[in-house]
Write a protein that binds this DNA or RNA. Structure first.
Lengths: 261, 261
DNA sequence: TAGTGGTCTAGACCACTTC
DNA sequence: AAGTGGTCTAGACCACTAA
């Protein structure tokens, strides 16, 4: 229950800043502080809750960590959402983890060409129709020769020179090479997963039967200013590959260690 | 560079607590504070950095938010990892978002039976061999009759009574029904995605050709105390379905709004 | 019991945004 | 210029853990 003016109830054993956060949250939920408006300033909250600035700020920090408000010096505290944003979180350390290849496999570029995306290709890649890319294609295989996948990598034409650094067993991921060579900071990665089956050409290249079910992963890398700078599409023989994810409840410290009590 | 004893350099324009956090981070990286040991107490850090407790605690909070240390009253500050844990974060509001079905589709249970997992089935489901489950199977179709997927849902035998609440266009997800009815709080969800192709029985049930490529999603729900309580496997005709993910850089506020500058 | 981190108060100065 | 949030100090009491 939101207290329009006055301190929150105490004595429950809960910290004051949590009570204040709950009270503000209730107020937001009830529309007393609608989404898109500013919360009262810290000074006003101090008086309202008869508390100190530190305590009020702790309460606001709780809401900020939950993604409910966003604070900015000089402006105020903006209400973003009436309820906690993420209930489930997945974290990975680096983009590499999103789609790591076996260490003893190698990517061999067999074709490199400049392409301008037709409508259908652009739609499939979720890129802009008519945009220009340099495409490098080839199989990735284990040292034993067993196929891992067929890969098409699209990069911006100005980054085409990285092709020389590709290939070989120890080659780094393309996004990483570009990131280092051209200073692109990876800001966002989109992944799309779908099933298909191998056409004749690729089946032959990988040494599998035509029509073999395949798992396709299309990854889009966004760099500085959110610009799309790389798209890679990999097609894996179904029996060799699966993609796993794990989501954990809670906003904080998801997936970390704990005290070995 | 970690200052073994003494204040960090100032005047860089960066807040003191960030400088301290960086300094501690460097110390952790250099093995001065090895992973698994405790950081110096707050009082010692106050003297080392000639600062106030609040400032030192802000620095420690930074490290805690990054997943580098874990703090506990009475014990101390445990070093967990030498480097920032998650560089990329994906967040979803509820498990439902991890695999939402079209609203105008309905799941129809055509078979329900008690099963004891054989070795191969247990391996495929990543469950314990010999464990007992109740399996409910059936197609999910649009109102128009077009197939969405074939689904096998495995639940713990004691939850089998939820079968009566299944089916119909507006039916809630199984995990949600169980969660409400039996108080299982979903703590973790595992998702595995792979490609396959439809066998004769399922192809017939969904009205697709035998051998049609399919995208399979196997979801595992872990509840109270991390106990696995539901497994669901869905097989989708490839042309109708793809699975998308998006990962954003940074630990904090990933995916939230921003000021409409 | 000593030491840890958790909460809280009462001040202060500053950078930033808006008017 | 006024108001916002960001940083910082110097104190205080408390709950929890470990020895």
């Amino acid at each position: 229950m939101q207290q329009a003016s006055g301190a929150v109830a105490r004595g429950s054993g809960r910290p004051l800043y949590r009570e204040i956060a709950d009270d503000l949250l209730a107020g937001i939920g009830q529309g007393i502080f609608p989404v898109g408006t500013l919360l009262p300033g810290e000074m006003e909250l101090i008086q309202r809750y008869q508390s100190s600035r530190h305590t009020v700020r702790e309460a606001l920090r709780v809401l900020e960590d939950m993604g409910i408000v966003q604070r900015q010096r000089g402006r105020g505290t903006l209400v973003l959402s009436p309820e906690a944003q993420p209930a489930f979180v997945q974290m990975v350390k680096s983009p590499e983890e999103l789609f790591s290849y076996p260490a003893d496999s190698a990517f061999r570029v067999v074709a490199e060409e400049a392409v301008t995306l037709s409508g259908s290709a652009a739609q499939r890649l979720k890129a802009v129709k008519g945009s220009r890319w340099t495409r490098m294609s080839g199989p990735r295989t284990f040292e034993s020769g067993m196929p891992v996948c067929w890969t098409d990598v699209y990069v911006l034409p100005e980054y085409a020179t990285i092709a020389r650094q590709l290939g070989g067993a120890n080659s780094r991921p393309v996004y990483e090479i570009i990131s280092k060579a051209f200073g692109e900071e990876v800001q966002k990665i989109g992944i799309e997963i779908y099933a298909s089956s191998f056409d004749e050409e690729r089946a032959k290249a990988l040494g599998v039967d035509v029509g073999t079910p395949s798992l396709c992963l299309c990854r889009r890398y966004y760099g500085n200013k959110g610009r799309l700078f790389e798209i890679s599409v990999s097609e894996h023989p179904a029996q060799n590959y699966s993609y796993s994810l794990e989501f954990t409840s809670g906003w904080q410290n998801a997936g970390h260690w704990s005290w070995n009590k």
